[in-house]
Structure formats: C-alpha cells, structure tokens
Design a protein around this nucleic acid. Structure first.
Lengths: 329, 329
DNA sequence: TTGTATGCGTTATCAA
DNA sequence: TTGATAACGCATACAA
C-alpha cells in the first residue's frame, strides 16, 4: 500500500476532496468537518504530496542559495543567516556549490527556469554579461549577494570592502605598522577586484608605501600558503592584510615556517571574520564584512520580491567592523 | 509573457505534445520531427517544468543530505563526496541541517513523505527508537551515515571509531606519551558513545592509566575550549585525544592559554582529519575516519537502493587511518 | 459551508 | 513513428 491521496482521505472521512483540502489549509470549515478530516488524516497517515502541490500552486516553497565553495567558512556564516530567515518564512533552503567558473553560475541561473525553487540568492565569484543577462531574464526572483551594476536591475546586498580595508589599515597604522603588504585573491573575481581597489585607495589615503601586493590563485588556504612562500622571499613587511580568512591562515602558517612571529614580527589581518578567525592560532584579527547580515538581508529581499515582483530593486550596502584579536598588536 | 509550456511548443512546431515530450526525452522519432521540435524549443526558449515532471514521474531528482551542523568541517568533506556522486548520477543535492536534537531528525525523516526528495542520507547525532521507526517507515530510501542497529534494516555506512582510537593511542605510546587524556563530546550521541567505547577499549588493551576523561557539552570549538579549561585545572596529561577536530583545536587554544606547548608539553590528536586539521596551528595530527569515503559510499548505496528497493540492506564499515602532523612529536 | 469539476504541465498508454 | 487522451495529486472557481 502506497501513500494515501487526498481522495482516499475524503472517502474515509465521507466528505469531498475539496473539504479535505480546505481543512488542511486552514480555510473556514465547521467544527465537525475539521474533526472528521483530521481523524481520517490521522488514521491513514496522510501526508500531502509537495510535488502535486507545487504543480498546482506554482511554487515549491524551496529557495536556493548558490555559493562558490562550501569549504570557505564565510559561506557557513552566510548560509546560517539565510537559512534562519527563509525557514522562518516556511521555505526550505537548497544550498548549491557553483565553483569559481562563471559558466557554471550561468547554467545554474538558467536552470532555475525549470522551477526547482521559488527564488535564488547567488553570491557570484565572477560576473560577466552572460551572468547579468541570465539573472535579468530569470523566471524566478534573484538576489545577488555581491556587486553587480545597478543596470542589472536586480536586488543586491554587498559588503563595503574599501571601507573594510581602511579599517584594517587604520588599525595597523595605529599600532605602528607602516610596511603593510596585501595578499589578494584573483583580481578577476568580484571580491578580488573590490579588495584591490580598497587597498589601493587606502594606500593613497594614508600615503603608505605598500610593501608589496600579491595575487593568490584562489581564495583558499592552500593558495594562501603558496602566496606566503612567494612573498617572504622578496619582501619584509611588518604587517599583512589578506583578502579573506583562509588566505590569512595560510599566510600565518608560512610565516611560522619562516620563523616569524605573529604579531611580534608581522601583524596579520584577515577578512570575513568567519569562525575560522576565532579558531586560528593566534586568533585572527579580521574585518567583519557583515556576512551574516548580508545573508539575512539578502534572504529578506528575496522574500519581499517573491511577495511583490514589481517593487523597485534595492541595493543594500552593509558596513564593516573590525574584530580585533591577537594576530595584531 | 510567462514560461512556454510543452503545448505551445507543440503548436509552434505543428506536432503533438506527445511528440515534443518524446523528442525531449530522447525516445525514437524521425530526423525531421527532432529538428522541428528542437527549433520550436529554441525559438520559444522552452524549458521543461520540473514540478510537473516530478508529479508525473513520481520523482524529484533531488536527494537530501541531513547533517547536524554545517559549521563542523567534517560535514564539508562528507558533503563534497556525496555531492560528487549524486550529481554525476543526475541528482541535485539538498543539504539540510538538523541540529543536535533527535526530534528534529525524526521530523525531517517524516517530512520526506511529502516527496521533496527521492532519497535521504542522514548522519544522525542522536538515535532513538522513534528515529529508527521513522526511518523504517519512510516512503523514500534512507541511508544512515552512522551507527544504527542491524535490526533497523537499513543501509548504513559507518566509521570504525574504536580502531581509530587505537591508532591514536598507539601513535602516542610509540612517541613515549603515556599519560593520555580524552576529551569527548556528549556520550548520549552516536559518535560520542562510539569514541567513549573506543577509548575505554584502548586503555584496557594497552594497560594505560587514563589521565582523565572529560565530556564536552558539544562537538564544537567553544565546547572544546571550555573542556580544556576544566581539564588543566585538575590533570596534567602529556597527551590528549579529542573526539573531533573542532574539540581538539579548542583544547589547543586553552593549552596555549596555560602556557603549555604543543606537542612539547602536551601532544594533541583530533579525529575526522578535516580541512581544519591542516589549517590549525600547529597542524593537527588527526584520525581520518574516512568521512569522504563514507559520504561517497553512502551516496552510492542510496542510488543503488533507489534503483532497486528489494536489495538486502548493506552495512559498510570504513577503516580509519592516521594523518600525522605536527601536534604530536 | 460544502461539493463538483477543472486544470496545473508533463509523461505514458493506446490506437491509428 | 505519431497523435489523442488519460492520468499524476492537489487547489480552487463556481454552483449548490
């Protein structure tokens, strides 16, 4: 015996399928009707089929969050925030990993047309015209957690990297560190470009002589280590800012290998203020770019747009703060 | 104008909906038919609706992976492995966080009856009769990544914690550490109970005098720190084995706070061999309980069972290895 | 308030 | 090989 349908419940309760549906969805019904239906539901162990319901109402009550790398702890933070908001609104969250290739991102957005989910929060690592186009043409609402042009006409919520970079530089200068190096991720990515600009701005504003910039191959721990190796063969900075926490932890490992103490010899600042910042040793001073708040607001924007698709696209910017820990003096 | 349906494609191509469906699903058709349909599909930008398809074929081509805590890096490893297998088989993966409460796990398994997904891999932290019952009664195939009784009649793939614990103890003894402490997670959890038994066995086998056992409140970094604090006020072990990497990193932080050097004063071994083990400082010697392989095999079992529900339940045990890093001499 | 009947978009069965 | 048509399980417009 397979799963009972609403028709069998109706038969068992001696009422119509419409009445069963109404009771199940909390629409007006007499006390007796409610009792009869609920009893039948109970007895048969009836559970509504979400597939059929989805087809009928045109919604899956499922939302997608697309991130580049589930191994990056910043996405854990963001995921938690998004999950909290959407589940409170009665949606399930589907987390998808796109990888760092933009064609996979485009394929994902295009695939949304199949109706897997009612909406999408995407945090794209790389953005090109194809991606913007696919987002604009997407059948379901999309919110970008990241930076795309206003012309894309889409809700966005992004971090303020330049401001965050300024916080990091100010902190280091206040602690007397003036030879500041910068380890970035790939500059052809959205966060990479933003961090690069932020660092350049800060250097100019504070009239620093930048003690070298290096572009790691990726935003990962391994890339951070490799960058660190390359780095300390050429420069001798007394501080280094990294584009995210994973890179920073990688660099710290390499510093240790070179016998340099953190923060005594070299101060290190990460970005994202992820759980890893707290767990690393020494605990990592990190720029909190508001990943939790960005996730929360992105989810809220998505829900709002699902509710009303005519509203004007919002562009939210979340301001950074600095979480000072022991990797800086 | 909204998304085109198969009927509109049929009209545009001047053929029947049945023919369109056939072409789209690669069933036999004449060359000309294929061309005409594909052209119409192209022109209209038709994309099949997965909701309707799901209702008709009774499958969503979606699989669920349920884990306790997305912040635990061991699940990242497992998730990656599962994702790889299921996506190769044409399924999307939905990752769900259950938290550590068994009633949430039961609710999740029960909810599968709604037909959200075609199968479930669950890695339960706590197991009770309700959960076993819900798994046995579940409408879709379930594979347990963890330890449940054979009487549950379900496919399982689990780690060999006792063996892993033995590896850790042997390694420490070989390095001359004889006062070995143990920081476990909650013993009312599946992994907690398994680790506890494993440590007790190893202590007996190697005739150790255990230098204290402590039960942390959770399998988290914060709980590890708290456990470490409590610990080093009472005991002075020269080695400590932790039930997972997060706990181990927490304990190492506390050791540093007490001015104890790792591994010189105290050797530390974690379990799971997650990415965090590599990233921690010093890099953490960790028992690899085969989380990647467990994920892979669990996914394979699930696919096999979806394919044939009559096959006899398999119980796979994955053997551990030791990843030696610098937190041990 | 309740029941009847229709349709959501697709696949599958059956005749042609 | 192709076309007409009946489901899949549910929600809802409309009638009673």
């Amino acid at each position: 015996m397979s799963r009972p349908t609403i028709a069998e419940v109706a038969r068992a309760a001696g009422v119509s399928v419409a009445s069963v549906s109404r009771v199940l969805n909390g629409l007006p019904a007499t006390e007796e009707m409610v009792v009869r239906v609920q009893r039948a539901v109970q007895e048969l162990g009836y559970v509504p089929d979400s597939r059929a319901r989805s087809l009928k109402v045109g919604r899956t009550f499922q939302l997608t969050l697309a991130v580049a790398d589930v191994g990056n702890p910043v996405y854990v933070t963001m995921m938690r925030a998004v999950e909290e908001v959407v589940s409170a609104a009665g949606y399930r969250l589907v987390v998808t990993t796109t990888g760092s290739d933009v064609v996979d991102e485009v394929a994902l957005v295009r695939g949304m047309a199949r109706g897997y989910a009612d909406g999408l929060v995407i945090s794209p690592l790389r953005v090109d015209d194809d991606l913007i186009k696919s987002i604009r043409e997407c059948d379901v609402p999309v919110v970008v957690a990241g930076n795309v042009p206003a012309s894309a006409g889409v809700d966005t919520v992004r971090a303020n990297s330049p401001k965050g970079m300024a916080l990091a530089v100010e902190h280091l200068l206040a602690k007397g560190r003036d030879r500041i190096a910068f380890v970035n991720g790939p500059v052809d990515t959205v966060p990479g470009a933003a961090r690069a600009k932020g660092f350049a701005d800060a250097v100019k504003q504070y009239k620093l002589e930048a003690a070298g910039t290096i572009e790691a191959d990726d935003f990962t721990f391994a890339a951070g280590r490799a960058a660190g190796r390359e780095f300390f063969e050429t420069n001798r900075p007394n501080a280094v800012i990294c584009a995210n926490d994973l890179l920073a932890v990688g660099v710290m490992h390499e510093l240790a290998a070179y016998g340099l103490a953190v923060p005594a010899d070299v101060a290190v600042i990460g970005m994202d203020d992820s759980e890893l910042a707290e767990q690393s040793f020494p605990p990592l001073t990190s720029v909190n770019l508001g990943s939790a708040e960005r996730g929360r607001r992105a989810a809220e924007l998505l829900l709002a747009r699902i509710d009303d698709d005519t509203r004007k696209p919002k562009r939210i910017v979340v301001q950074p703060t600095l979480s000072v820990r022991r990797s800086t003096p």
